[in-house]
Protein backbone atom coordinates (compact mmCIF):
# COMPACT_ATOMS: atom_id res chain seq x y z
CA UNK A 1 0.00 0.00 0.00
CA UNK A 2 1.00 3.56 -0.52
CA UNK A 3 1.98 5.63 2.46
CA UNK A 4 -0.87 7.91 3.44
CA UNK A 5 1.14 11.07 2.79
CA UNK A 6 1.19 10.41 -0.95
CA UNK A 7 -2.58 10.63 -1.16
CA UNK A 8 -2.55 13.71 1.03
CA UNK A 9 0.04 15.36 -1.21
CA UNK A 10 -2.09 14.73 -4.28
CA UNK A 11 -5.07 16.18 -2.45
CA UNK A 12 -3.03 19.25 -1.45
CA UNK A 13 -1.84 19.80 -5.03
CA UNK A 14 -5.39 19.57 -6.36
CA UNK A 15 -6.56 21.97 -3.67
CA UNK A 16 -3.87 24.44 -4.66
CA UNK A 17 -4.89 24.16 -8.33
CA UNK A 18 -8.48 24.84 -7.33
CA UNK A 19 -7.49 27.90 -5.33
CA UNK A 20 -5.42 29.19 -8.25
CA UNK A 21 -8.38 28.77 -10.57
CA UNK A 22 -10.77 30.50 -8.23
CA UNK A 23 -8.46 33.45 -7.65
CA UNK A 24 -7.19 33.98 -11.18
CA UNK A 25 -9.97 33.23 -13.60
CA UNK A 26 -12.66 35.68 -14.61
CA UNK A 27 -14.75 33.35 -16.70
CA UNK A 28 -17.59 32.11 -14.52
CA UNK A 29 -17.44 28.63 -16.02
CA UNK A 30 -13.75 28.28 -15.18
CA UNK A 31 -14.47 29.32 -11.62
CA UNK A 32 -17.06 26.57 -11.45
CA UNK A 33 -14.47 24.08 -12.69
CA UNK A 34 -12.13 25.27 -9.93
CA UNK A 35 -14.83 24.75 -7.30
CA UNK A 36 -15.44 21.20 -8.53
CA UNK A 37 -11.71 20.48 -8.33
CA UNK A 38 -11.66 21.77 -4.75
CA UNK A 39 -14.56 19.51 -3.77
CA UNK A 40 -12.89 16.52 -5.38
CA UNK A 41 -9.66 17.19 -3.50
CA UNK A 42 -11.58 17.26 -0.22
CA UNK A 43 -13.39 14.01 -1.05
CA UNK A 44 -10.09 12.31 -1.81
CA UNK A 45 -8.87 13.48 1.57
CA UNK A 46 -11.89 11.99 3.35
CA UNK A 47 -11.61 8.61 1.72
CA UNK A 48 -7.83 8.40 2.21
CA UNK A 49 -8.16 9.14 5.91
CA UNK A 50 -10.95 6.59 6.31
CA UNK A 51 -8.91 3.87 4.66
CA UNK A 52 -5.80 4.48 6.71
CA UNK A 53 -7.00 5.59 10.11
CA UNK A 54 -10.38 3.90 10.57
CA UNK A 55 -10.49 1.01 8.14
CA UNK A 56 -13.40 -0.72 9.82
CA UNK A 57 -15.82 2.19 9.66
CA UNK A 58 -17.53 3.74 6.66
CA UNK A 59 -18.19 7.18 8.06
CA UNK A 60 -15.77 8.84 5.64
CA UNK A 61 -17.45 7.13 2.73
CA UNK A 62 -20.92 8.30 3.77
CA UNK A 63 -19.57 11.81 4.17
CA UNK A 64 -17.95 11.68 0.74
CA UNK A 65 -21.26 10.50 -0.74
CA UNK A 66 -23.13 13.38 0.83
CA UNK A 67 -20.45 15.73 -0.46
CA UNK A 68 -20.74 14.37 -4.01
CA UNK A 69 -24.51 14.72 -3.98
CA UNK A 70 -24.33 18.27 -2.65
CA UNK A 71 -21.73 19.14 -5.29
CA UNK A 72 -24.19 17.95 -7.91
CA UNK A 73 -26.92 20.21 -6.51
CA UNK A 74 -24.54 23.15 -6.34
CA UNK A 75 -23.29 22.62 -9.87
CA UNK A 76 -26.87 22.53 -11.14
CA UNK A 77 -27.84 25.78 -9.45
CA UNK A 78 -24.54 27.48 -10.38
CA UNK A 79 -24.93 26.53 -14.02
CA UNK A 80 -28.52 27.76 -14.05
CA UNK A 81 -27.36 31.09 -12.67
CA UNK A 82 -24.60 31.34 -15.28
CA UNK A 83 -27.11 30.57 -18.00
CA UNK A 84 -29.57 33.21 -16.76
CA UNK A 85 -26.85 35.85 -16.47
CA UNK A 86 -25.53 34.97 -19.92
CA UNK A 87 -28.97 35.39 -21.44
CA UNK A 88 -29.29 38.79 -19.85
CA UNK A 89 -25.85 40.19 -20.55
CA UNK A 90 -24.39 37.95 -23.25
CA UNK A 91 -21.24 37.74 -21.15
CA UNK A 92 -19.83 35.33 -18.59
CA UNK A 93 -17.03 37.55 -17.38
CA UNK A 94 -17.61 38.07 -13.68
CA UNK A 95 -15.73 41.33 -13.55
CA UNK A 96 -18.29 42.87 -15.92
CA UNK A 97 -21.27 41.97 -13.75
CA UNK A 98 -21.22 44.88 -11.35
CA UNK A 99 -24.80 46.11 -11.38
CA UNK A 100 -25.15 45.94 -7.63
CA UNK A 101 -21.93 47.78 -6.93
CA UNK A 102 -22.57 51.06 -5.14
Amino acid sequence: MEPLVNYLFVSVVLFAIGVYGLVTKKNALRMLFAIEILINAANLNFVAFTRYLHPTSVTGHSLAMFSIALAAAEAAVGLAIILAVFRLRKDVDVSEIKGLRG
Binding site: M1, E2, P3, L4, V5, L8, F9, V12, V13, F15, A16, I17, V19, Y20, V23, T24, R51, Y52, L53, P55
Partner: peptide, 26 residues
Protein backbone atom coordinates in the same frame (compact mmCIF):
# COMPACT_ATOMS: atom_id res chain seq x y z
CA UNK B 1 -0.61 36.62 -7.81
CA UNK B 2 -2.80 33.58 -8.31
CA UNK B 3 0.14 31.28 -8.84
CA UNK B 4 1.81 32.75 -5.76
CA UNK B 5 -1.27 32.17 -3.62
CA UNK B 6 -1.56 28.61 -4.91
CA UNK B 7 2.09 27.88 -4.14
CA UNK B 8 1.78 29.35 -0.65
CA UNK B 9 -1.32 27.25 0.03
CA UNK B 10 0.34 24.12 -1.32
CA UNK B 11 3.52 24.63 0.67
CA UNK B 12 1.67 25.47 3.84
CA UNK B 13 -0.66 22.49 3.71
CA UNK B 14 2.18 20.27 2.53
CA UNK B 15 4.29 21.22 5.48
CA UNK B 16 1.40 20.52 7.83
CA UNK B 17 0.97 17.08 6.31
CA UNK B 18 4.68 16.34 6.33
CA UNK B 19 5.41 17.49 9.85
CA UNK B 20 2.55 15.63 11.44
CA UNK B 21 2.83 12.03 12.50
CA UNK B 22 0.50 10.71 9.85
CA UNK B 23 2.92 8.54 7.99
CA UNK B 24 1.59 5.14 8.95
CA UNK B 25 1.18 2.39 6.42
CA UNK B 26 -1.70 0.02 7.02
Amino acid sequence: AGVLVAIVVALGLGYLVYASTIATVI
